[in-house]
Design a protein around this nucleic acid. Sequence first.
DNA 1: CGCTATTTGTTCAGTGGTTGAATTAAATGA
DNA 2: TCATTTAATTCAACCACTGAACAAATAGCG
Lengths: 419, 419
Amino acid sequence: MTVVWQCQEVNQTAAPAGAARQGSLRELNLALVLGRIAAADRPPSRAALAAETGLTRATVSAVVEDLVAGRLVTEAAPTPRAGAGRPARGLVLAGDGPAGLGLEINVDYLAACVVDLAGEVRHHTVHRADLRPVAPADALGRLARLAAQARAHAEAQGLSLAGAALGVPGLVDDTGQVRLAPNLGWRDVPVPELLAGHPPLTETVDGVPALVVDNEANLAALGELHAGGGPGSFLHISGEVGIGAGIVLDGALFRGTRGWSGEIGHIPVRPDGPPCRCGGRGCLERYAGQEAILSAAGLVGAELPADTAPNRLAELAEAGEPAVLHALHEAGTAIGVTVASVVNLLDLDTVVLGGGYAPLIPWLRPPMLAEIERRVLTAAWSPVTVRPAALGATAAAVGAAGSVVRRIIARPAGWLTRF
Amino acid sequence: MTVVWQCQEVNQTAAPAGAARQGSLRELNLALVLGRIAAADRPPSRAALAAETGLTRATVSAVVEDLVAGRLVTEAAPTPRAGAGRPARGLVLAGDGPAGLGLEINVDYLAACVVDLAGEVRHHTVHRADLRPVAPADALGRLARLAAQARAHAEAQGLSLAGAALGVPGLVDDTGQVRLAPNLGWRDVPVPELLAGHPPLTETVDGVPALVVDNEANLAALGELHAGGGPGSFLHISGEVGIGAGIVLDGALFRGTRGWSGEIGHIPVRPDGPPCRCGGRGCLERYAGQEAILSAAGLVGAELPADTAPNRLAELAEAGEPAVLHALHEAGTAIGVTVASVVNLLDLDTVVLGGGYAPLIPWLRPPMLAEIERRVLTAAWSPVTVRPAALGATAAAVGAAGSVVRRIIARPAGWLTRF
DNA sequence: CGCTATTTGTTCAGTGGTTGAATTAAATGA
DNA sequence: TCATTTAATTCAACCACTGAACAAATAGCG
């Protein structure tokens, strides 16, 4: 069985692109009701859903019946209510329905996780290893084993995997091929082909799960969107070995024409600055990339593993080490200049710092804000918030798994037709 | 009668945000069919529409009947077809139905135009005057007179104005207030209030036309989208006295959280460069704004009107004037650095130069492309195209009018309920 | 304890809108 | 002239939502 390829684009709207046929109405309302159930903080009743969506209670009942039959929703203890009346039956996302498999390949670890419809992380494994010397096929083989374990754990909990998403620190084209992953040393790696021999990733209990390959920073941003409260617009910057960014606009990831958006690490900060291996000069990565910070802090020979470097820097900064403080100030300034560009261009009001930047926020934020306030034209009316990411280092894996379940929630009809 | 305020956001999709009720189906299909008629290059028949949309011919007939009754579509000579068979009846956008009124206030002119459903400019006036010394209320009064003339011309041609949009060179908030228009010297100007006393802008033949106030660069980008071929994604840079940009993603204008996107003029090019009046340093406007180019070319005392300066620069460049060539090279380099940032961030493949930049393209493009190729990570796989805008100096007015008719095409149900 | 008020959820006839097949309309070509 | 072909309309069937009536389940009150 071959990998069935699925378009990267997560169609956030349930609206039919083409003809609106009769069933479209039901598709739309399935998505509407399921979306409200997912967004509610307490199990809503059918009557409450009818009131807030504007549908009739009759319609909501019919829609909910479909959702329950498709194992997307189950009944639970309702929100207690004062006064008389027949007690409501609360509706919650099913904890034993479809789930998403999230995978991540990074420079120094592999990760797999399973997220259920409600967004709970039901399984999570990280396998630490330096993957730079490992051949892509080999690395993907290890990943497939991790995925097989994850599937076993999911099934043991009564979950069926509805799909998988894989985050890679590089540029992915729309056929799933990794065109360039500089920090891994990958170039033109046909991920779907290489995974085709590993059944756990190519089939699930009922049918065929699609595998989506995407940029790691994009998926991390989705994870943040998922974990960090309501839908909004923000820029999520992950400071790993490289610097990537995910742009979330109105609760949807913005991927660009070819899915290569967010390459913030190579935005020029000083056009005549030091040369970067991308061919340009003075790119952000030269000022705020992990290597740049470490070398500016005089820690270049310290031989720190990539995953502990940020914490080490935070310790030294805490201790008042002048070189480290200076390096972080410079990095924060460079990030601030870049963010000012982004905000002037896109009019965003929130910047989330994730990955290795999270522990360094106390030192990065002040110079960032200073630059932003100076340079953003609209800063006076709408201050820009800089906050740490809600998820930790493996945000991309969680975001990947979340993207699978979010797609089901956004377009439940696709899942329901499997029954 | 007061100005009825309408949300700036042009909802590109006809999908209902809330409940999908029965009528939603028809709304969706009205939009679908009308959209195809608008996008077709030759009058399609009902049968052809059925084939390409996937709807039944019966449904298409019913939908078309509604559209014809609402004066959005008329029958025309069909596309000739070889062979036997009953001849088709071609469908085209009505030339005598609703039309859009586009208005523009800029530093040295006022403009008004009327665009019909098919996108034809049916009326166009430009009133040249330096508006910097004029009070906002007075300027808007003159604009209202221009609008009244435009309405008279539209009605004489059998058109009904369905709405109006006004482009302003500054930041507009979501109540229509101009928060800041630096080059006009406006600050916190309540445009809708000031226009409320001018009936031509507050009522039309059948009901109330909404007035939308938007950034001039945004509307110019919409005009370009409208005139420049199929829907795509591009960055439209207008070099007027300031530098503004409109971002079009997948055929839709991207406005940002508050509608203040595209402030490209204040993206830092050299963070330690000369101070800018925005409070930052080394902004793009300091290198590629009209004043910056003129002064770098040694023409600072030449007292050129803003509208003739670009052509004068082109003449001098054509003649090989070294200072001018140098100034344009510097400007092109700065624009290129900025565009590289934008492309790295958004993954766009097309940059359109409009406004005063259009005549200077031969000199601006080479340095731009050089910077883009050096600095854009994905330039090797997807070259970035730099091309001149299809519309001239008053693109914003045409784009404003076009945005009105495009909204009708995107959501015809709203118009049809007027009958 | 029983009755009423109240709210939830379901049932059912009615309706809008799409579907698919049959029918009518209008041309070409032998 | 007539068969062929394609376009457009008509009509019964069907799907999904609507609105009202009804059944279910509880709290409050005498």
